[in-house]
């Protein structure tokens, strides 16, 4: 079970007609280091055409640039990060991040960690985990470049997060996933349903561990850049039924997630999740969860 036709047909069954997508690069201003207007003005002065992302506070699409926006002095000074527009959504879904104890469970390469630190104004503590040593180096470089002050990094598999003996106010689960064709031209050639199911199992293990370390009144955001329901709606439906979690209403870019997937009826509250089909952004899925009260 693989190939473009197989996956495209699945998307059709979920209500989306496949079309190729030319993604626009996006940046996010690190407002803790600079005023947004200042850096936008400076980039414009360098000839970079920016377009405000309407559904993000500090996000801009790079409409045109004759050089890499990842090699400007402004970038090197940590004034902005290169972060795909949909990927900027999850961190904004938490309420009241300042002074909180936050877990970024699959943190590398650090785009969301830096964004969380920015939203927290460098207060509180972020515990950032990742299992891969090389990716952790990318993460620590990002933290240094963006002058993040409130983060501690451990090389630890998210499935063992309870070893830290901490309970968190907020948990970011930007889980490892199968990705999507909008960011990977070879996606349809490389991915099979077996890969998707393997990732979905890993994601359930991470969700299970995350619930153990979430405070009773805590919030958890789950996100993938996969279009496959096994990693998204089906996993959340499973979590609602097995982990004592409930979805929370969110107001962000994206469609209500389907509650019927390939003939299977899901918990009605799964519709509170947001599914983002590729178009203005890459493919994405995001939802907010808390312990059932």
């Amino acid at each position: 079970m693989f190939g473009k036709e197989f996956f495209v047909n699945r998307y059709r069954l979920l209500g989306w007609e496949f079309r190729d997508v030319a993604l626009k690069q996006a940046i996010r201003i690190n407002t803790v280091n600079v005023k947004g207007a200042d850096v936008v003005g400076r980039l414009k002065g360098l000839g970079v055409e920016l377009e405000k992302v309407p559904f993000l506070h500090n996000g801009y699409w790079v409409a045109r640039s004759d050089f890499s926006v990842g090699a400007t002095v402004e970038y090197l000074l940590g004034y902005y990060s290169i972060q795909e527009a949909a990927a900027q959504i999850p961190a904004t879904l938490f309420t009241d991040l300042k002074d909180k104890l936050v877990l970024d469970a699959c943190a590398a390469p650090g785009g969301k960690t830096v964004q969380l630190a920015d939203l927290m104004d460098n207060t509180g503590v972020i515990v950032a985990l990742d299992v891969n040593k090389q990716r952790l180096e990318a993460l620590t470089n990002q933290l240094e470049r963006c002058r993040v002050k409130n983060t501690v990094v451990y090389q630890l598999d998210a499935r063992h997060a309870s070893k830290l003996g901490l309970k968190f106010d907020r948990i970011m689960l930007d889980v490892p996933c199968s990705g999507n064709f909008a960011t990977d031209r070879e996606w349809f050639k490389r991915r099979t349903l077996r890969d998707v199911e393997r990732n979905a199992r890993l994601q359930r293990q991470i969700l299970t561990e995350a619930v153990k370390v979430l405070k009773d009144d805590g919030e958890m955001v789950y996100a993938t850049c996969s279009l496959e329901p096994e990693e998204n709606e089906l996993n959340i439906d499973w979590a609602l039924k097995n982990l004592g979690l409930e979805t929370v209403e969110i107001n962000c870019y994206g469609e209500e997630a389907p509650t019927e997937v390939f003939g299977k009826r899901l918990d009605d509250s799964v519709k509170r999740c947001r599914r983002i089909w590729p178009g203005k952004t890459q493919g994405f899925f995001v939802c907010k969860l808390r312990k059932r009260r």
Binding site: T151, V152, V153, L164
Partner: peptide, 21 residues
């Protein structure tokens, strides 16, 4: 380190990076 980070890292070693490098 901040005070909060100092407290946390003293109790939980094995970290790779903390606070301001």
């Amino acid at each position: 380190l901040s005070e909060k980070l100092k407290d946390l890292t003293e109790k939980r070693g094995g970290w790779r990076h903390a606070g301001t490098y």
